[in-house]
């Protein structure tokens, strides 16, 4: 159980870091993707496109190397909830939005919103799965 939790945490960390690096390589593509959601004003979208990749890399590094876990989980949860919210509203409004989650990939565009939302929910579950395992460990004593 503990090993599974660690592996899940590591994988979520790698996914976050990967998403951040891909966005860093082409910040304009990520900005374009944010704008397709038609939620943020331009200036706020620019700020989000600049900060989010670094935030994702920080979260990914913390989760993978198990440092500042509480903060990483908190921000990771916030980001994932925000991503799920953005994708859901875009799906409900019928927008032709580019997910932008892992760069501007053709496969994301073609698969619509279902896979990106499922992926974000799985990552959220991965974050909380680790937290639950840790809590069980604390309340049940050392394994």
């Amino acid at each position: 159980m503990r090993i599974a939790g660690r592996i899940a945490e590591f994988l979520v960390g790698v996914a976050f870091a990967w998403a951040g690096v891909v966005k860093l390589l082409d910040p304009s593509a990520f900005l374009s993707a944010i704008l397709t959601y038609e939620v943020f004003p331009y200036q706020l979208a620019v700020a989000a496109s600049l900060i989010t990749p670094y935030l994702e890399i920080c979260i990914g590094g913390c989760l993978a190397f198990r440092v500042m876990l509480g903060g990483a989980r908190l921000i990771g949860t916030g980001l994932l909830v925000a991503f799920i919210g953005l994708l859901t509203q875009a799906a409900l409004r019928g927008l032709d939005a580019d997910c932008g989650c892992f760069g501007s990939s053709v496969s994301d565009s073609e698969s619509g919103y279902t896979w990106p939302i499922i992926r974000d929910i799985l990552m959220l579950a991965g974050l909380y799965g680790c937290l639950i395992v840790d809590r069980l460990k604390i309340s049940g004593g050392a394994e």
């Binding site: 670094y54 935030l55 920080c58 979260i59 500042m68 509480g70 903060g71 990483a72 908190l74 921000i75």
Partner: peptide, 12 residues
């Protein structure tokens, strides 16, 4: 956790 989140946000 809040303190750590603030540190991560500041780094980003």
């Amino acid at each position: 956790a809040l303190r750590e989140a603030a540190v991560l946000l500041a780094i980003a």
